[in-house]
């Protein structure tokens, strides 16, 4: 077991480097750099920047060096000092801007993950046990609907219903009085009252696929002889389900965390932008538009790292519950 975990942890290192390099290449891709954008912004307000000033600016931000050097400097700063560079647009260190937003992103992703599980597990089991019942068909219809509706559209429709029917603004994660307030019990409670909407939206689209996985797994297990044996022993139907087939059907369920988390985070980006949540996504979009490369790069890197860690956790969990995997 320990060997498996160490091996898996070892694999994280090249993956994380690949992700960091990918993030850096991505933010380097746009033609021109921040200085070009900056000059263009100034030019639109009739301020002219001469070549010397531009060159000085580039030198100050280290934009005149070759890409690989810039990358190594960047990654070295992150690894040794937790320094993600300077946000050009905000004129302050990136690390001061991202952590609270990343924390809220993580909270949103975890809450959605838990909601997805809590919904998909009982529904999947129910659909399998009561195969071809009205309930099963209703849930199947729901899953196809959930798969088909883009999450941002669902967010928009719910916003519309809330605004037009109930006269409520459902955007954001905090009420206005808590927005800048320090963390307290009141703020936590306020967060919970706002969190349910994005969580529900994300859960609708992700439970869909998970219900189908759960249903198929259960259907594979239910006709097996050990289930009949257990029933013949006189176990109650519920106890029987929970004790045997459910535990085996859960296996592939755990491995789905690996792809569920990237999906959830992807979906949360769009939903967060629509609902204007103070998570990483709106700032990521803004920084991409403004070519604020270090800020955008930090977000891309951290979001990708988050999903990599998710797949690591899912692999380890899987090895914990399934001895076949760790002995391989």
């Amino acid at each position: 077991m320990l060997k498996f975990v160490i091996k898996r942890l070892f694999w994280m290192i090249p993956s994380l480097f690949a992700v960091s390099f990918l993030a850096f290449v991505l933010i380097q891709l746009p033609p021109g750099d921040f200085v070009t954008t900056y000059i263009a912004t100034l030019a639109s307000s009739n301020e002219v920047v001469d070549q010397n000033t531009a060159a000085q600016l580039r030198e100050r931000f280290g934009l005149d060096q070759p890409m690989l050097v810039q990358y190594l400097k960047w990654i070295w700063g992150i690894v040794t000092r937790g320094d993600f560079g300077l946000s050009f647009e905000w004129q302050q260190p990136v690390s001061g801007l991202i952590w609270e937003r990343m924390a809220l992103t993580l909270v949103l992703a975890l809450a959605s993950l838990i909601a997805t599980w809590a919904l998909a597990l009982p529904i999947g089991v129910y659909s399998a046990v009561k195969k071809y019942s009205i309930g099963d068909y209703a849930f199947t219809a729901f899953t196809f609907f959930g798969l088909s509706i883009p999450s941002f559209l669902l967010a928009l429709v719910l916003m519309y219903v809330a605004a037009v029917e109930f006269g409520q603004d459902v955007g954001g994660l905090f009420s206005s009085q808590y927005e800048t307030a320090p963390w307290s019990i009141g703020k936590m409670y306020d967060l919970l009252t706002h969190l349910w909407l994005p969580v529900a939206i994300l859960a609708v689209s992700s439970t869909a696929s998970l219900i189908r996985v759960m249903r198929a797994n259960m259907l594979d297990e239910l006709p097996k002889p050990y289930v009949t044996t257990a029933r013949a022993k006189g176990l109650s139907e519920f106890r029987l389900l929970v004790k045997y087939p459910l535990r085996i059907a859960l296996n592939p369920f755990i491995s789905t965390i690996a792809w569920l988390l990237p999906n959830l985070i992807s979906g949360s980006v769009v939903v967060a932008i629509v609902l204007n949540l103070p998570t990483a996504a709106p700032l990521l979009l803004q920084s991409l538009m403004a070519q604020d490369m270090y800020l955008a790069g930090a977000f891309v890197l951290l979001i990708c790292a988050l999903t990599l860690i998710g797949s690591l956790i899912s692999d380890i969990l899987l090895a914990l519950v399934d001895p076949r995997i760790r002995l391989e």
């Binding site: 694999w11 993956s15 690949a18 992700v19 990918l22 993030a23 991505l26 933010i27 891709l29 746009p30 033609p31 690996a258 792809w259 990237p262 999906n263 985070i265 992807s266 979906g267 980006v269 769009v270 990521l284 979009l285 991409l288 538009m289 070519q291 955008a296 977000f299 891309v300 979001i303 990708c304 988050l306 999903t307 990599l308 998710g310 797949s311």
Partner: peptide, 21 residues
Amino acid sequence: RVIDFVLSLPTIPIWLALAAA
């Protein structure tokens, strides 16, 4: 490993970064 890596990436942020370019 490459396939696993690509699959574990969240697509939307990557697309956004690529499309912004």
